[in-house]
Amino acid sequence: MSEILRFRDWAEPVPPAAREVVSKLPEADEGRPPLLFVPGLGHGGWAFAEHWLGHVAARGFPAHAVTPRAGGDLRAQAHDVVQVAASLPRQAVLIGHGTGARVVARALGRYPARAAVLVAPVLDGWAALGAALRSNPAGTVPALAGGRLRFSARQLFGANVPAEEAAAHLERIGARPRADLFGRADLPEPVGGPPVLVAGSPDDRVVPRAALDRAAARYGGAPLLFPGMGHYLMLEPSWAEPIDAVLDWLLKEL
């Protein structure tokens, strides 16, 4: 597909839709680029609002999380991300989690991000599906027929997440995956050549270690690993560790 001749976007532009954006701004504007977080399947901006947004703002970066339109396909969701990124006063850093990383990867073909971070990225849906079937067959099989994907605590969270907390998060996570969020479509070449970091946990039961390596290799690097954590790095007790490492990396790259 040509990135220059965009007949589809010219003839049928993605229509506008409501997009929820949560923001936390630093006390003083130090001229740092804004960070735009993109959640994956089944959760919303709240997952970042829990700990990460406040922490990021405290470290001097404007922090935003967008929840792309519900039920949107990959194209529409990437459009939502680019729309919000372009509305920010400065070139943004895009940070996607899970299938949100895939939305970010797609958005990178359309928006020259200052940098990008793919956290526990589901870029290759089949690998993720395989992992899901292994760790939670009962919750996954119905989704294959278009039903709701049900997760188990053991599948999503590391061993050190208290059971009732995990249960509360699970309540809010509900996913009906769309086929195109899972496919293995080509990822576009990021425009403007931004630095891209892949981060995740070798103990993630949704995104296997090999998938992390592949994702990082796709963008020319090695993944940053946080052993012992589950899929939702931003909701675990040690949430500060990965986000601090990401911010340190950013400061080095900028």
């Binding site: 532009p13 506008p16 020259p112 403007g192």
Partner: peptide, 8 residues
């Protein structure tokens, strides 16, 4: 092509 106008 890499900086859309607001879709609204």
């Amino acid at each position: 092509p890499d900086f859309p106008m607001p879709d609204t």
